[in-house]
Amino acid sequence: MLTENELKRYERQIRIFGGEGQERLKNAKVFIAGAGGLGSSISIYLAAAGIGRIRIVDHEKIELSNLNRQILHWDKDIGKKKAASAEEKLKKINPYVRVEAISETIEENNVLALVDDFDLIVDAMDNFHTRYILNRAAIAKNIPLFHGAINGLYGQATTIIPGKTACLKCIFPEPPPSMTFPVIGATCGVIGCIQVTEVIKHLVKMGSSLENKLLLWDGLNTKIDEIEIERTPSCEDCGWK
């Protein structure tokens, strides 16, 4: 049940999806992989929206060069663990949310325990090695994976529903080369907010989503495109042939 305070707090969004939708958000358990640029905007907006339980995982420490985009972390936090900084800020943004921040590296051998019984995974990673681990975990647990990635003024996002949509390995059978990517914080904001919108719609069961579509954000020319994608029957991770 929502308290009187919660009804007031979420009043503007309850006008969209009703108290029932807000209850769904309150009962949801969301796993966020990464507390960097994407993880900052994703976790802030999910916490503000009233997701009941958020687990955010990141093993890195905060550096000065993170601060142009990783808005969860501030000057005073340099040298601290991103997980601890995320937990402190998210609890202040919304004390009604149960936040668990874990400072660990997501690996093949710990991912299932980390994701535990959470309802869905939000991808806020910066490399495809870990994204593939999340992709396999989502398939193994049969839970959605909300993918996002950024580079400079460009970004992409898609919503992966195991057994129904193309998975990350269908779209990218081989990892794109890793690189030190340039970026402005606002690109993380755009893509992170698209991922959050997808998560909220999924939880409150509204609208249509980026299932089997890769959204591309071209910030340089202020354009959004969608590319149709299909499952690959021979996919290493989700294939059936």
Binding site: G34, G36, G37, L38, G39, D123, A124, M125, D126, N127, F128, G148, A149, I150, N151, Y154, G155, Q156, F172, P176, P177, S178, M179, F181, V183, C188, L216, I227
Partner: peptide, 10 residues
């Protein structure tokens, strides 16, 4: 045929 650059960062 769709052609697009991969986007990797986060």
């Amino acid at each position: 045929i769709a052609l697009f650059p991969p986007v990797v960062g986060g």
